[in-house]
Structure formats: C-alpha cells, structure tokens
Amino acid sequence: MANVKPRVKVPKSANAGEVITIKTLISHPMESGQRRDKEGNLIPRQIINSFKCEFNGTPVFSCDIEPAVSSNPYFEFKARVPESGEFKFTWVDDDGSVYEETKKIEVK
C-alpha cells in the first residue's frame, strides 16, 4: 500500500540504563474483514499483523496484532537504553509488505 507512513517518537538522548518511552503510529486502514461494501460483499481483511522493535539487533518489544486493533495502530511502550545505538521498528502487512523505520539515540 502506498499511503502507509510510519511515525515514531524516541528521545534524542538518554542516560545509560535509563528507561525511555517510545510512541509509534503507522497510518493504515486496518480493514477488519467484518465490514461489507454497498453490494453486501465482505471487504477482505487487510491489517498490519505484527510489529516489533529492536535495539542494536536485540528484541525489545513486539506485538501480534488482530483486526480488533484500531486503524492507524498506535503503540506506546518502554525501552531500556544501555548504550548509544539505533532502534529499528518493523511493521508487517497482511499483503506481505514490510514497513521499517529507524531512530538513533545517544547516551550522554
């Protein structure tokens, strides 16, 4: 899908070992597969079915997503920052598309 845009909010810097808050949002209709069009046909399901966040390659947080998650899925979670590095965020669509975003963080 063309108009899918991930947005992530990560602080630019943190103290070593600090636990930070990460907020993520990705614009996506999250078609549940329950709705019908005007002719009464089911609109096929198309959702983002998984999300994960890694820090320098180590898994931090991930989520299995079902159609009951709202459109433009939003996640807020915590992460411990042991060193400077890069957070990598990955969303996987039902159609196989993978959306990625990275954010650097520096330890003071």
Binding site: V60, F61, C63, S70, F77, R80
Partner: peptide
C-alpha cells in the same frame, strides 16, 4: 483476540498501550 504484547528484559518496564475496537 485483540493483541499480544511480547516483552523482554530490554523493555525496562512492562507497560504498553494501544487503541482497540
């Protein structure tokens, strides 16, 4: 089913929020 959150010790705190239908 709505969602399943997976945490690791790297999460620091077991907290997650989202929006559901």
């Amino acid at each position: 089913s709505v969602a399943t959150f997976h945490f690791t010790p790297m999460s620091g705190e077991a907290l997650a929020s989202t929006r559901i239908r």
